[in-house]
């Protein structure tokens, strides 16, 4: 495999000094769960906002023995996931996989796999805007103080408004959490459906924001609580439909529009989970007119 790596570049693209700097930031992040550690983010050959933070974290923790899985929107075959997986296959020559179960590193954009992760796995999130308070207070110097002093009242205001207007909290993704009862953290734009998976997860969770030059972490078995009110507790979304392919009624479903009349079907956003269920013999009720590959 390693014979195929890119000529003229170091293993996994970044030079060892940069990786060491990033690992120090990761260690600090692990030591202070949920705290955003500034780091000397490097320019990457992919655009900012396309996963450069996640890639820098992956590049810094990946070793020759690792098996890498990359997902975007839960799927292994979305364009950006393909592009990043190829990048590491090319620059690190590591083995890649689409199987959640056998991956040692999973880089993700916008989802947490449905299959529970294990202690020997690392989940690396791509983060566009790491600051949960950003849309309340645009100033970095101010938000850092707000974190330092646990001044989180303003974030609660947003939830109050939701309840006042809709009778319940209406934030559906990028739903802020408190980590270890101390730091408010942006879980990256995952659906709030995935929020509960973050808490007490056996796997290490690392978050990289390249554009904003921040790294943060949730160590294994750390409490992660979604913000709410005592009398309006956090809840996740649910679907009336089930996956048309595997029949799952408990996973996050993507809506697919299948004809010009806007007819739709629902399928698992986690393609590996869906495939696994199909091999186990689960079948969904696919619309009759539908052509399927498998």
């Amino acid at each position: 495999m390693s014979a195929a790596t890119a000529i003229g570049y170091n293993f996994a693209y970044l030079d060892e000094q940069s990786k060491r700097m990033i690992r120090r930031a990761i260690l600090k992040g692990v030591a202070i769960p949920g705290y955003q550690v500034p780091f000397g983010g490097r320019e990457m050959p992919l655009p900012h906002g396309w996963g450069t933070g996640g890639m820098q974290v992956t590049a810094s923790v990946i070793g020759e023995a690792d098996k890498l899985k990359v997902i975007d929107q839960g799927a292994d075959d979305t364009t950006n996931a393909v592009s990043i997986r190829r990048f590491f296959a090319h620059t690190a020559g590591v083995e890649t996989t689409e199987l959640t179960a056998e991956a040692t590193l999973i880089q993700t954009r916008h989802r947490i796999p449905e299959r529970p992760l294990q202690a020997d796995q690392i989940l690396i999130y791509q983060v566009p805007i790491p600051e949960p308070l950003r849309f309340i207070e645009p100033r970095e110097s101010e938000t850092r103080k707000m974190h330092a002093l646990s001044e989180y009242g303003a974030m609660q205001v947003k939830l109050y408004e939701d309840v006042a207007r809709f009778g319940h909290i209406a934030t559906s993704y990028d739903y802020p959490v408190m980590v270890n009862n101390r730091y408010m953290m942006d879980p990256s734009p995952i659906p709030k459906f995935d929020n509960p998976k973050m808490s007490m997860m056996p796997a290490l969770q690392l978050f990289g924001a390249g554009f904003e030059k921040r790294i943060y972490a949730v160590p294994p078995f750390t409490q992660v609580e979604s913000l709410d009110f005592d009398d309006h507790p956090f809840e996740v979304q649910s679907w009336e439909d089930a996956c048309s392919i595997c029949g799952s009624d408990h996973s996050f479903l993507d809506e697919v529009i299948i004809d010009d009349n806007g007819s739709k079907m629902f399928v698992c956003s986690d393609t590996d989970y869906c495939r696994e269920r199909v091999t186990e013999g689960f079948v969904g009720e696919a619309p009759a007119q539908l052509e399927t590959e498998q």
Partner: peptide, 29 residues
């Protein structure tokens, strides 16, 4: 300009999951 361009252009990436969450929410509301 590299950061600005990257971030603006990242809107071209898939946002199916977040959009799905918003769809679900707006239907519910």
């Amino acid at each position: 300009c590299v950061s600005a361009n990257g971030f603006v252009s990242h809107l071209k990436l898939p946002h199916y999951v977040d959009f799905q969450s918003e769809l679900e929410m707006i239907r519910r509301l």
